[in-house]
């Protein structure tokens, strides 16, 4: 059943850098409770699109709406708290795991309770005994989970994950994918997950946007898209010719 509560609406958005279009005329909608996969080859503009949605970059054309409100009417800090982004490579913030998780709320002069920190650590599958560990001592996988907890501490309405399994071993990849599915079931957010891995998109078996050469080639369930032979460009993409 298709979710009906629209969280994020992207209308004809384009982005250019140094006078060159990175993506052009992108439109899609993200609904509450769904995992939307943004699938495309490296360098096709997936990360730039997420950065535009988080306003780390500005779009050249088009409009973005968050729960029906144009994001141009929302201040940058507020927008960024509501549209949380987990980066592909997370930066090392100083301090302990607990301090790192508390960063988002503390930037907004809010205090997060010890209980809430424990709950977030459990939610992202981070061993609670690590709460006083220095962030610099964490493994890549733990780092990724910490970044997720950090963003979730802001209670975002939209959760954007940029290649969340890059650099992880195959077992850890499956664990993170399960975690995303669990989060989707427990949270009322919409999840926008960026990946270049077709197999990962298939495993999620969710609505998928295929982005290539700065354009959306298709929007639909991944299995249906793979089985469809109508779109020649799409077939080329699935055959790895991009």
């Amino acid at each position: 059943m298709k979710p009906v509560n629209s969280l994020l609406k992207v209308c004809g958005v384009s982005f250019s850098r140094d006078g060159k279009f990175i993506f052009k005329n992108i439109s899609f909608e993200l609904f509450a409770g769904e995992i939307l996969i943004l699938l495309g080859p490296s360098g096709c503009g997936k990360t730039s699109l997420l950065r535009c949605l988080n306003r780390l970059e500005s779009v050249a054309e088009g409009e973005i709406f968050l729960q029906g409100v144009p994001i141009s009417r929302i201040t940058s800090p507020d927008l960024r708290r509501r549209v949380g982004m987990v980066f592909q490579t997370s930066a090392d913030l100083l301090g302990t795991v607990e301090e790192s998780i508390s960063v988002g709320p503390s930037l907004n002069q809010q205090k997060i309770s010890a209980h809430a920190v424990t709950s977030l650590m459990e939610k992202v599958g981070l061993d609670t005994s690590l709460r006083n560990r220095k962030v610099s001592g964490l493994s890549t996988g733990e780092h990724q989970r910490l970044s997720l907890a950090q963003v979730l501490a802001n209670e975002p309405q939209v959760l954007m994950l940029d290649e969340p399994t890059s650099g992880l071993d195959p077992t850890a990849v499956l664990t993170v994918e399960n975690l995303v599915q669990k989060l989707n079931a427990s949270l009322k957010t919409g999840i926008l997950l960026v990946t270049h891995d077709i197999n990962q998109a298939v495993r999620f078996n969710s609505r998928t946007l295929v982005l290539a050469n700065g354009e959306i080639l298709a929007d639909g369930n991944i299995q249906e898209l793979i089985n469809s032979s109508q779109n020649l460009q799409l077939q080329k993409f699935f055959q790895g010719q991009f």
């Binding site: 708290r81 949380g84 980066f87 490579t89 930066a91 988002g104 930037l107 907004n108």
Partner: peptide
């Protein structure tokens, strides 16, 4: 840069 952008993305001034 990445640390600054992480903080910005979390709502920092």
């Amino acid at each position: 840069r990445s640390q600054i952008e992480t903080l910005l993305s979390l709502g920092a001034s």
